[in-house]
């Protein structure tokens, strides 16, 4: 069981529980189920707490960038504003439009939410603190990111609304287009590290240097593609409120809308954590504890994404496609080629 190789407290806790199970004569598969449940609960708890903070941060940052104050009334510095909003949205009615395709409509938010949580299976929080060190780590992350697209298509198509449908079209085209440079940028990092495992990538960065210095081009491609994958401004065409009301989630209300909202921020956090791992050395760093480094680096990317959101205007659809296929893809391919030559030398 891969739980804690170096950090001693979780390991001791696990050994103590194992001893308890053998003493009580309980089957070991129950222990495996228990451990998996605890890990999942910890990860979901981490995501929920961070998302609540992220939404507040986004509004506060946006406020200050636009010379406003952002939320101020609920709690100190308006910190409890998100909590209040979440409670409000949870008690709202869950409306399913008459023209909607009922089952697909109801399932879409869940299908979108699951991959955003599953990404965290391989994220290394600190040395040894990782739900599972898959040896296909980066491939797994790419696969899970790709699973978001069918969910958005489901949401937009099943709503029975033209704005939703158009939003889904845009989401599908955009996400499929930007996945290619995103994966190619990741591939260059994998080539440098010689492994798909995120732990090995961190180790490789400890041995040489942060990959942002070896892969500046790859980093820029990754950053742009990741922001496009997250549907954030300047790439928020799938939910462009000035033309499409709210895109694919126009018809959603109450809890299901909250799930979409949660997914969006969970994906932002997940992408930032992966970017920090791939390019900034993950949890490694001097003086501070590894987990603090991990959070700092993750929030650096979060801040960057928010800064970009409140600085740049939205692109047009044709500009969006041109940027991906005619600029990012060639640059990413050249980057992979250059990295290949660099590794071979």
């Amino acid at each position: 069981m891969y739980l804690a190789a170096t950090s001693s407290l979780p390991l001791r806790l696990y050994q103590w529980t194992e001893q308890l199970f053998t003493d009580l004569g309980l089957p070991l598969w129950l222990l495996a189920v228990l451990v998996a449940t605890v890990k999942a609960a910890l990860i979901i708890g981490f995501i929920l707490i961070n998302v609540i903070f992220l939404i507040w941060l986004e509004r506060k940052l946006g406020g200050h960038i636009q010379n406003r104050l952002g939320p101020v009334y609920t709690g100190p510095f308006g910190l409890l504003q998100t909590v209040a909003d979440a409670l409000k949205v949870l008690v709202k009615e869950d409306i399913i439009p008459a023209a909607a395709d009922r089952w697909v409509f109801m399932a879409a938010p869940l299908v979108a939410f699951v991959p955003s949580v599953m990404i965290w299976l391989v994220v290394p929080f600190a040395p040894g603190v990782q739900a599972r060190d898959l040896n296909i780590g980066t491939l797994y992350v790419a696969a899970m990111t790709g699973c978001t697209v069918p969910a958005l298509l489901m949401a937009g198509w099943s709503s029975g609304n033209k704005w939703s449908l158009l939003g889904a079209f845009r989401a599908g085209a955009q996400l499929v287009s930007y996945e290619v440079p995103l994966i190619l940028a990741t591939l260059a990092v994998v080539m440098l590290a010689g492994s798909l495992s995120l732990n090995d990538i961190i180790r490789a960065q400890q041995e040489s240097t942060w990959f942002i210095f070896l892969q500046p081009l790859g980093f820029v491609v990754y950053l742009i593609s990741a922001i496009a994958e997250l549907n954030r401004t300047p790439f928020d065409l799938p939910e462009a409120e000035s033309e499409l009301v709210a895109g694919f989630n126009t018809e959603y209300s109450g809890f299901r809308f909250a799930i979409f909202f949660l997914t969006e921020y969970a994906n932002l956090l997940g992408s930032s954590a992966i970017a920090a791992t791939l390019f900034l050395g993950g949890w490694s760093g001097p003086f501070l504890p590894p987990f603090v480094w991990f959070l700092l680096k993750t929030y650096l990317f979060v801040f960057l994404a928010m800064w970009i959101r409140f600085t740049l205007p939205r692109l047009r659809v044709d500009q969006l496609m041109n940027l991906s296929w005619k600029f990012l893809l060639p640059v990413a391919l050249i980057n992979v080629l250059g990295t290949g030559v660099f590794v071979a030398l």
Binding site: L134, I136, A142, A143, T145, G146, C147, V149, G172, V176
Partner: peptide
């Protein structure tokens, strides 16, 4: 076969299903 499973999800679920759904919608 973890690698195959990853590729299966990435290519078949993430790409092929998406493209087919997209094609149907269009």
């Amino acid at each position: 076969a973890e690698f195959l499973a990853g590729v299966q999800i990435l290519v078949y679920v993430g790409a092929i299903t998406t493209i087919i759904l997209f094609g149907i919608m269009l």
